[in-house]
Write a protein that binds this DNA or RNA. Structure first.
Lengths: 99, 99
DNA sequence: ATACCTTTGACAATATTAGTCAACACATTA
DNA sequence: TAATGTGTTGACTAATATTGTCAAAGGTAT
């Protein structure tokens, strides 16, 4: 169900890594990587970056998906989730201009 | 610095509540309400709702600000924060249509 | 001084998240 | 069939973050 998870699983398979190998390579328990790929547990940003490097892929989109999921997780079941996102965007743009 | 905090503080003052009175009314420690209003500690959604009711105000915008701050907190210092918000929005819209 | 107000910081309690480990089921293959 | 490799699961512990409690401080006004 997780976008980052699915993408990273595909990448792993294409790169020819077994779950175990990949887990060892990025210094994470196999169980955790398994769960992260399937969305049972959320990724750490660190893992995403390490995996991207391992699979020789650009990490930007993966990180964006990762963050997006993090945000949506916070907003799940919230009636005003969409409105909140829009306000957050506006604030962020304003802030950026400021500095 | 917190939007919800500022708004709720203004509302409280307009409604003529001291910090103590308001805190007691919503069953929260004074120290915490003080910190929440000033953005030193984040609000709980429950507090926002209770305060809105206490001040006889519609809570929608307050909740939206509250959620927006929660989200921005998660994304602070993230290079791709804006992109992540956009992706999250898209996903959310898609999801909504689905159900 | 007394009675309010708000703020502060130290501390404890709780909840959430992350990590560890052993065992399972399945398939492959020596 | 026994050994090896695959991914998954659940129970448990450890670490971290979030919340709550409390006592005391510094204001201001009566």
């Amino acid at each position: 169900m997780s976008t980052v998870g699915l993408k990273l699983r595909e990448l792993r398979e294409k790169a020819g890594f077994s779950l175990r190998k990949a887990a060892v390579a990025i210094d994470v328990d196999v169980a955790i990587l398994s769960k992260m790929e399937r969305g049972e547990r959320r990724f750490s940003k660190e893992s995403v970056l390490k995996l991207a490097e391992l699979y020789k892929t650009n990490s930007d989109k993966l990180v964006i998906d990762f963050l997006s999921e993090k945000v949506l997780y916070e907003l799940e079941e919230e009636e005003f989730a969409l409105e909140a996102l829009k306000v957050a965007e506006k604030q962020l743009k304003y802030k950026k201009k400021g500095k």
